[in-house]
């Protein structure tokens, strides 16, 4: 069954295990491809991962003059093809979250490919596999829908990936606030 990456931002503990694990995936050449931010470092310890959301109609690929960014049949938006990328960095500017990273030595863009080595065979990506807090989860649409129901709050705001930040994405995000709708046991 098709699974998606799902982000429960409230859970993040800032351990950056996802970044360490990213370097471990085949073809990632020991470079990590995503980001973890301290939300308000002088105030508290809140952190959140910023991962490529694998847009259905990705701005990065659209902006690429060399068609170096391919979309895999699973929906994963792949890293730039070495032979095609001309190093113009249009993609980094086009992406609403500034996801694609740039290797100045190789003059090559590299980005999250959703561990395509793994996910093409239904194996969860490295970041999700190791995430100790379940901020990153690998779920079926049914499971995501169940979460949607569970956390459907009065204000209708804390709903998974809605409204989409930039068009529809393959990765789904739940913004901080999951505990607001929880009924306490006693």
């Amino acid at each position: 069954m098709k699974k998606r990456l799902y982000l429960e931002l409230e859970n993040c503990i800032g351990c950056r295990s996802c970044l360490a694990a990213c370097t471990q995936c085949g073809g990632h050449e020991q470079r990590n491809r995503n980001y973890v931010y301290d939300v308000n470092p002088l105030v508290n310890r809140q952190t959140m991962p910023l991962m490529c959301l694998h847009c259905v109609n990705p701005a990065c690929a659209r902006s690429c003059p060399a068609q170096a960014i391919q979309i895999h049949e699973t929906g994963a938006v792949l890293s730039a093809l070495v032979e095609k990328c001309i190093g113009c960095q249009n993609c980094t500017i086009a992406c609403p979250y500034g996801i694609p990273k740039f290797d100045t030595e190789q003059n090559l863009m590299y980005k999250c490919d959703l561990c395509i080595d793994r996910t093409k065979d239904g194996i969860p990506p490295m970041c999700e596999s190791v995430c100790p807090s379940n901020t990153l989860q690998w779920l079926t649409d049914e499971e995501i829908e169940a979460k949607n129901q569970q956390f459907n709050l009065d204000n209708g705001k804390w709903v998974t990936s809605m409204p989409y930040l930039e068009g529809e994405t393959n990765v789904r995000v739940n913004l901080p606030g999951i505990l607001q709708g929880v009924t306490k046991l006693f």
Binding site: N11, I13, G14, C15, S17, N44, R45, T47, P132, S133, N134, I178, L179, V182, T183, K184, L185
Partner: peptide
């Protein structure tokens, strides 16, 4: 850290988390 998915799950189920610490650690 790898205890944390279990800790958060207690809260997700509606259970309680009480923490005694001089610092406001991530937990």
């Amino acid at each position: 850290p790898t205890s944390m998915f279990r800790v958060w799950h207690v809260q997700e189920r509606g259970g309680y988390l009480i923490v005694a610490d001089p610092r406001e650690t991530p937990i």
